[in-house]
Design a protein around this nucleic acid. Structure first.
Length: 196
DNA sequence: CTTCAGATGCTCT
DNA sequence: GAGCATCTGAAGA
């Protein structure tokens, strides 16, 4: 079983965000592998980024996980009902992470359909298929992630990342989603996505 | 295809 | 009490 090593995460956050595209996120759940290729990411860097929860090294109970060693999972609740998954980057003490915004399902799509829509895969509408795991809240619901895994070490089951497999199309970047409040940081081109 | 309102609960001030 | 790294369904173009 090949995991991305800690050194992969212990780098500049923008580099990690780009390099995660095409890698395979693995969630072991109920004895099954739920996996997907990472298609979209965003970088958050507390040192200089007003959109980051830990901007200017702000430490609170929630942001404590962002200060953990690289390769730690940071999961938080947003809008009262959705979970977002981040992978902590840079040396311990530098609060920074990559938000996973989109997955393309590989293994376990049947279970993902039940988790996300409560229906079988072959019962999904065209719209449900198209919007299966293409958002941070959607993918967490689809692979059964919640805050109980906050602080989890990504070099151990049941949640980890495997190296890129297969070919990948062009990589694009642009402004991040949903950070209009972040003043000058709202225009940073720190969102990355790949043609698959 | 688009916009729009509402759901919902935790965290920090 | 305010605000939030979102999503859904309904309604309109």
């Amino acid at each position: 079983m090949t995991y991305l090593p800690r050194a992969f995460y212990d780098r500049d956050t923008l580099t990690v965000a780009r390099d995660l595209l095409g890698c395979v996120l693995v969630r072991e759940y109920g004895g099954e592998r739920l996996t997907g290729r990472i298609t979209e990411t965003e970088a958050y860097i507390g040192r200089c980024d007003k959109a980051c929860h830990a901007y200017h090294y702000k430490r609170t109970r929630r942001t404590e996980t962002l200060f953990a060693r690289p390769g730690t999972a940071y999961l938080y609740l947003i809008y009262g009902m959705y979970t977002c998954l981040n992978l902590v980057t840079e040396p311990a003490g530098e609060p920074a992470a990559v938000l996973i915004r989109g997955l393309e399902p590989l293994e376990g799509a049947e279970t993902m359909a039940r988790l996300r829509f409560g229906r079988d895969l072959d019962e999904l509408t065209a719209t449900q298929r198209k919007n299966f795991l293409n958002g941070p809240g959607k993918l967490c619901k689809g692979i059964a992630l919640d805050r109980t895994l906050d602080g989890h070490d990504l070099l151990t089951p049941p949640l980890y990342v495997q190296p890129r497999q297969g070919e990948m199309g062009a990589i694009h970047c642009g402004p991040r989603i949903g950070v209009d409040y972040a003043q000058e940081a709202k225009d940073f081109p720190w969102r990355f996505w790949a043609d698959m």
